[in-house]
Computed example of a mutant assay.
Amino acid sequence: MHQSHLEDFIENLLKGIGVFHPIQLNKFHIADQLGVYLHLLEVRSRGLWDGELYYIFLNPNLSRQQRWQDFGHELCHGLRHAGNQKSMPSSFRKLQEWQADNFMYHFCVPTFMLKRLELPPDQRIAAALIAETFNVEFSFALERLNRYYQNNLFLLNQNIKEGDRFG
């Protein structure tokens, strides 16, 4: 089954820094490997460029799962976005936030790792397994599972259509 460009990007990024298994998904290790400065600070989670350096600030009062999810969101801004959101048109800022949320779901529960899980047919049990395996909240795991199934259906339909064209 094919992956999206985002899924390929995340897989290459993680494998490029030696992260192959869910147990290796550690925000401090990943930040260090990517040259991102990660700090726990009692502020709303955010990322900040200072010249050539990118900082991510995570609120230590959040749960471990929320900090991991916020890390994925803020990492997207550092890796894939440019500019100061405060000076952007509202529509562009909303686009970047949507992209960062989408990245977060795929980064925190990478597709190449998710594919290796033997997911039970019951959606709630599968989501609980994902939440436990990838250190995310249950509601996050449920949304990620839905996105995973939707993407697989979309790619399957695309492959069928391409087969019709070339068959």
Score class of each variant (00 low, 15 high):
His5Ile: 04
His5Gly: 02
Glu11Val: 04
Leu13Ala: 02
Lys15Met: 11
Gly18Glu: 02
Gly18Cys: 05
Gln24Thr: 02
Phe28Val: 13
Ile30Glu: 05
Asp32Asn: 15
Val36Gln: 03
Tyr37His: 08
Leu38Pro: 04
His39Gly: 00
Leu40Val: 00
Leu40Ala: 03
Leu40Pro: 00
Leu41Arg: 14
Leu41Phe: 14
Glu42Asp: 06
Arg44Gly: 03
Arg44Val: 07
Arg44Tyr: 05
Leu48Glu: 08
Asp50Met: 14
Asp50Phe: 13
Glu52Ile: 03
Tyr54Gln: 00
Pro60Val: 14
Asn61Ala: 09
Gln65Asn: 09
Gln69Thr: 07
Gln69Met: 12
Phe71Asn: 03
His73Gln: 05
His73Arg: 13
Glu74Ile: 01
His77Val: 00
Leu79Gln: 02
Leu79Trp: 05
Arg80Lys: 09
Ala82Pro: 01
Gly83Met: 10
Asn84Trp: 08
Ser87Tyr: 02
Met88Leu: 15
Pro89Phe: 08
Pro89Lys: 13
Phe92Gly: 01
Arg93Phe: 01
Lys94Leu: 10
Glu97Met: 06
Trp98Cys: 03
Asp101Phe: 04
Phe103Tyr: 07
Met104Phe: 01
Tyr105Thr: 01
Tyr105Cys: 03
Val109Asp: 05
Val109Pro: 08
Pro110Met: 11
Thr111His: 13
Phe112His: 11
Phe112Lys: 09
Leu117Met: 12
Leu119Arg: 13
Leu119Tyr: 08
Leu119Gly: 04
Gln123Phe: 14
Ala127Pro: 11
Ala128Met: 15
Ala128Ile: 07
Ile130His: 12
Ala131Gln: 12
Thr133Val: 10
Val136Trp: 10
Val136Ala: 08
Val136Leu: 11
Phe140Asp: 10
Leu142Asn: 14
Leu142Arg: 15
Leu142Glu: 15
Arg144Pro: 05
Leu145His: 07
Arg147Cys: 06
Tyr148Asp: 08
Asn151Thr: 14
Asn152Tyr: 08
Leu153Val: 06
Phe154Gly: 00
Phe154Ile: 09
Leu155Gly: 02
Leu155Met: 09
Asn157Arg: 15
Gln158Pro: 04
Ile160Gln: 12
Ile160Asn: 08
Lys161Phe: 07
Glu162Tyr: 14
Asp164Met: 14
Asp164Gly: 12
Phe166Gln: 09
